[in-house]
Amino acid sequence: MIRRCLGGLALAALVSCADETVVAPLAERGAALARDPNVSGSQYNRFACTTCHVDRPAEAGERILPGAPLRGAARRPSYWNGETTHLREAVVRCWVHFMRGRAEDLEGPTGDALGAWLESLSPNGATEGTAPIAHTWPRSTRDLGAGGDPARGRVLYQRACANCHGAFGSGQGRLGPLVSIVPQDTLAEHCQGELPAGVPDYASYARQVAYQKTRHGSFLGYAGSMPPFATELLSDEEMAHIVALFRCP
């Protein structure tokens, strides 16, 4: 009798266990993946989708993020300043170039989940965020001169750069050990050695390199995984203050 009761107790527990299965929208899985810096599977990646993107612009607060807000993104006619009209290709660009993933990895469940998440941010009939977003990345760069204000540069650094590079001068809180410490790492590399043709001195070189890297990120001949900052996000006037932080010793 006692054994039957105890067996029934165990069985009841097991039966009630089956009731714990919850069916959730795939978008929830996508939202979790979008927050996960390990999502791409690359040991070199520290970016999550949410490192550079927010849902609505207000969520960025004071931060200046290189990625466009995602609310309405699935209904936009184009992405990457009109460079592609397909959402999947836009996502693949981030996935491959910044997150160091393989494009084919987005063809399976991970891609479906992320796609469902983006779709959930773009409800049918809603128009919020559906207009194409202008991001201009000038192909050529230049020396913005030495007239920038370092104090204003520090404020802009905190808003635009600290999100990944951590605290200015120490790198504390940066995304990972591969992320450069600003400005030391840049200056260590570009305040010595041979100057490229047409560059008058190291001071100009450091400014130009900082500008090129910020504008082009990892593209147009500059390696790494950094996303580019368009002129709509940081104007050349603001960039002049930022490059003022890059002063050779």
Binding site: E20, T21, A24, L87, E119
Partner: peptide, 18 residues
């Protein structure tokens, strides 16, 4: 075992990418 809720994600009717 029941304490760990088993979450199953609903499959999509169509590709989210169209």
């Amino acid at each position: 075992g029941c304490g760990e809720t088993n979450v199953v994600y609903a499959p999509l009717d169509a590709s989210p990418w169209g």
